[in-house]
Amino acid sequence: MNTANNALTEAVYYILLALVEPMHGYGIMQQTAALSNGRVRLSAGTLYGALASLLDKGWIEQLPDDGRKKDYRITAAGRKVLEQELLRLAELLENGRNILNSPSE
């Protein structure tokens, strides 16, 4: 399992977010690009590798096959990882804002 301090890569973060709705591979790529306004573009190779390792960790699951395209969905464990990541990101954001925006003497 993910320990509290493990940062997710941007790719994994967006893949997990996309998979809150069941989706196939190409859908994940498009969703990721849309969510990040085109900034994060997953390569097919990266996505393929990431899906395999997320399945392995049990953070996502494959939905019963109904043909050639495979649909994936986030699991409860995956959701938990995302929530922990949000806490971590919030901490980073808060510290950054506090220090950079503190009025200088």
């Binding site: 591979g25 190409y26 790529m29 573009r41 997953l42 390569s43 097919a44 990266t46 050639r68 395209k69």
Partner: peptide, 27 residues
């Protein structure tokens, strides 16, 4: 499914082709 075609194979290498209009292969 990702709009990528395998145009060639040699040994373990595969040569991938994609429409340039669909964006780059990688970040």
């Amino acid at each position: 499914d990702c709009g990528i075609r395998v145009v060639g194979e040699f040994k373990d290498w595969i040569y991938l082709q994609k429409r340039a209009s669909e964006g780059p292969f990688d970040m």
